[in-house]
Design a protein around this nucleic acid. Structure first.
Length: 486
RNA sequence: GGCGGCGUGGCCGAGUGGUUCAGGCAGGGGCCUGCAAAGCCCCGCACAGCGGUUCGAUUCCGCUCGCCGCCUCCA
């Protein structure tokens, strides 16, 4: 079954036919590195990280490019506020972005490109646009003439008249059409600047993505992603620039946009100030919980963030980590490792007890990444696997074989979704030995029916965040969040 | 004003023209347990409202109401 994606340009879900068979070239608009990112931003990056993982799982070769916007009015503003040079701001927040992404288990793009490393390319592109009559200079600024590009508005589905009707700001002086946008901005005193045929200045925001995406992926690359608030004007402008310069389209084959995160019926945004930082979330929950929250619903719809939603996700995720701890306890040395499986569409159908789940998993995700369905598959798998735990812990037999197979499938599917359990269970060696020793003492007490003492040990360990579960073959424990930690 | 999206059981959140069913969280009952915990089993006659198409609509069409996004920097 082929993979289908919802293409914003067509406004429908269509079979993903790539420029080169078996290869996917994707570009996602990255952060403007002028402050800390919030979970609304993170949702987008978590999603494209997952999409890339899924493509790889399905046997595609993926080239994933992401930009960092490191020249921008807000960066200049921020540098003024912090009293440091602009590049100090951008290096600080680039690093912060990477740290936050790592905390969420988001892998870096294959190619990360910075606007400031590509100014010459942009100047060349702008020059080309001026030459072709798509752009014009005005007092040191260069603007793109939207009237010169017939298809302007095709992505966002609006006409020039529509857009004029909703004008809310005074047209900037020097523009021929109010919606013409800046390709090059002349520098004021003290601002970062680069030389150009129109004098010292800096590139406008939109041009970097057109130039860098086509530089690394070529015209007509497969997927361009970003959040839905970039549809207009940013992506519309990217199309205009790239296709005007190339003299032909398409710039991009498929446009994918992630829905925005809402805060109490209003979108979360830096300019509104109603943000929840990734940093604050990962201080309170494992990164996997945020990943679960972001990925459990469709990427296209709005997602509301409120107090409590992460608690729900934490409970749901806990079901998985609890299962895995139980499997590890029951299987001991037979515990499977995470398989590095790929499941190309043309491969043999998956076999074994977990095969049915693998099939359901790919079936649902092939349909525009229906992750909710994929989560349901994993939950169903966990339920069936849990039924085998009790039998498996008694020793070899049917239940044990099934549990091994189901656990392996579980690790396969959850790793495609970007969850890592191996590291998350961690406690250091000494802690583990101390806990084991305390449990030995407790077992002795239990054997002597000294339940008050046994329960005392359990209660104390619980208060440290160590949860104890007794099983017919001895207690198992795992580290969690201490109750009422905050 | 223009363009677009959404409204599913206490909450989150998929999906479909027709009595097998999403899934999770929360809640109730049971099994297991020394007690727990975890797990397993069972339990909710949900699809904003009003019309229409149809043998049959939560699913298609229209209207109404409500919510949200974009049109300005924004993931």
């Amino acid at each position: 079954m082929p993979i289908k994606v919802h293409d914003q340009m067509l406004r429908s879900t269509v079979v993903l036919e790539t420029r080169d068979p078996g290869r996917i070239a994707m570009y996602v608009c990255g952060p403007t590195v002028y402050n800390l990112i919030h979970i609304g931003n993170a949702r987008t990056f978590l999603w494209f990280d997952f999409i890339r993982r899924y493509f790889l799982y399905r046997g595609w070769q993926v080239t994933y490019v992401m930009n960092y916007t490191d020249v921008d009015d807000r960066i200049i503003e921020r540098a003024g506020v912090e009293g440091v040079p602009a590049d100090a701001v951008t290096s600080k927040y680039s690093k912060a972005f990477e740290d936050d992404m790592a905390a969420l288990g988001v892998n870096p793009a294959d190619i990360i490109c910075r606007a400031t490393d590509h100014v010459e390319d942009m100047v060349e592109a702008i020059d080309g646009l001026v030459e072709r009559g798509s752009a014009y200079e005005s007092d040191g600024d260069v603007f793109f003439s939207i009237e010169s590009f017939d298809a302007y508005g095709k992505l966002s589905g609006r006409t020039l008249e529509d857009m004029r009707a909703g004008e809310r700001i005074e047209p900037q002086a020097g523009k021929r059409h109010p919606l013409d946008f800046a390709l090059w901005k002349s520098a004021k005193e003290g601002e970062p600047s680069w030389p150009s045929p129109w004098g010292p200045g800096r590139p406008g925001w939109h041009i970097e993505c057109s130039v860098m995406s086509t530089k690394y992926l070529g015209m007509g690359f497969d997927i361009h992603g970003g959040a839905s608030d970039l549809t207009f004007p940013h992506h519309e402008n990217e199309i205009a620039q790239a296709e005007a310069l190339a003299g032909a389209g398409p710039f991009v084959r498929f446009w994918m946009h992630a829905g925005l995160v809402q805060m109490e019926s209003q979108k979360m945004s830096k300019s509104l100030g109603n943000v929840v930082l990734v940093r604050d979330v990962v201080a309170r929950y494992p990164g996997e919980v945020a990943r679960y929250w972001a990925l459990a619903g469709s990427y296209r719809t709005q997602l509301t963030f409120s107090d409590g939603v992460l608690d729900d996700s934490a409970q749901a995720y806990d079901r998985w980590s609890t299962f895995l701890a139980a499997a590890r306890h029951a299987l001991g040395g037979d515990m499977p490792a995470t398989p590095a499986a790929t499941r190309p569409a043309d491969a043999e159908p998956p076999e074994g007890p977990g095969g049915e789940y693998v099939q359901r998993f790919t079936d649902t995700l092939d349909d525009d990444f229906n992750s909710s369905g994929a989560f349901a598959v994993v939950h169903d798998l966990v339920r069936e696997a849990n039924r085998c735990v009790e039998g498996a812990q008694r020793g070899p037999g049917e239940d044990r074989n099934l549990l091994i197979a189901f656990t392996e499938t579980f690790l396969e599917l959850t790793s495609v979704m970007g969850f890592r359990f191996d590291a998350a269970t961690g406690s250091d060696e000494l802690t583990a030995r101390l806990i084991d020793y305390l449990l030995e003492l407790r077992e002795g007490a239990r054997r002597n029916k000294e339940f008050a003492a046994a329960d005392g040990i359990r209660d104390r360990l619980e208060s440290f965040g160590v949860s104890i579960e007794d099983t017919p073959v001895g207690p198992r424990w795992r580290l969690g969040t201490p109750p009422a930690a905050a």
